[in-house]
């Protein structure tokens, strides 16, 4: 019984420590991650924008997986529909 209370207390303390550590910087870190993801997406779609890409054979495979993220990106950038002619997501 006692062990359980200690465990529960420990879990609670961990949660608060975790939140106290992460909450203040959640947005800064998420934004940095988003920027990296955007760069990655740009590399995947580089061929469509006229930038030659030696790995296009492989990146082509990734394109459908990026559909949702691409949609997020163009709405975030203020474009209602996909700006790419041959890649329509909505």
């Amino acid at each position: 019984m006692k062990l359980d209370t200690i465990k529960a207390w420990f879990r609670q303390a961990s949660f608060y420590a975790e939140e106290a550590y992460n909450a203040p910087y959640r947005s800064a870190i998420a934004r940095a991650q988003r920027e990296q993801n955007d760069l990655f997406m740009l590399l995947i779609f580089s061929e469509m924008m006229g930038v030659p890409n030696p790995a296009s054979y492989y990146t082509l495979e990734l394109q459908p997986l990026l559909m949702e993220r691409f949609h997020d990106w163009h709405t975030r950038m203020g474009m209602e529909h996909s700006p790419l002619d041959n890649f329509k997501c909505c």
């Binding site: 608060y16 939140e19 106290a20 909450a23 203040p24 959640r26 947005s27 998420a30 934004r31 988003r34």
Partner: peptide, 20 residues
């Protein structure tokens, strides 16, 4: 959105606000 707008426990938020 999980980035900027995240509902946060008020004690955590107080701790964050106070320490900043």
């Amino acid at each position: 959105d999980g980035i900027d707008y995240v509902p946060t426990n008020k004690y955590i938020l107080w701790g964050h606000h106070f320490t900043s």
